[in-house]
């Protein structure tokens, strides 16, 4: 995942950093949906805190916060990696792991283990 500085001879094709930022941020977003869902389910305080829109209940806060943090992570990574080449293989591994964990944590029998 170590970024490398752009070289002038490769300006014609977009750097991989922009794509890597989108991929890693999506993994982070998926993971956050799972983590916040579990947190909201197990903490009375967080359940109340996540109640952003009363008719929808805590789901509104869980998803709004996850989406906001995903977009923030994407913006930060994009700003840092846009003009660089990044090791996409390693980014993919981390993003897939986060995506898999996010999927698992949304499954109630797994979330109930915590």
């Amino acid at each position: 995942m170590t970024p490398k500085a752009a070289t002038p001879d490769a300006e014609a094709t977009p750097r991989s950093g922009s794509g890597a930022a989108a991929i890693l941020a999506a993994g982070v977003g998926a993971f956050l949906v799972g983590v916040l869902a579990v947190a909201g389910d197990h903490s009375a305080f967080l359940k109340q805190f996540f109640n952003f829109y009363r008719p929808t209940g805590p789901l509104s806060g869980v998803t709004t916060l996850a989406i906001a943090l995903w977009l923030a992570a994407w913006a930060i990574l994009e700003a840092r990696w846009r003009k660089r080449d990044v090791d996409i293989g390693r980014v993919n591994m981390v993003a897939f792991a986060l995506l898999g964990l996010g999927l698992l944590l949304t499954f109630p029998p797994v979330g109930d283990l915590f």
Binding site: I23, A30, V33, T63, L103, T106
Partner: peptide, 21 residues
Amino acid sequence: EHVAWLTPISITMAAAVAARY
């Protein structure tokens, strides 16, 4: 109610990468 939200996150990323590259 939770897993459904992985869908827009994933496909928005896919669309953004396709648009960028």
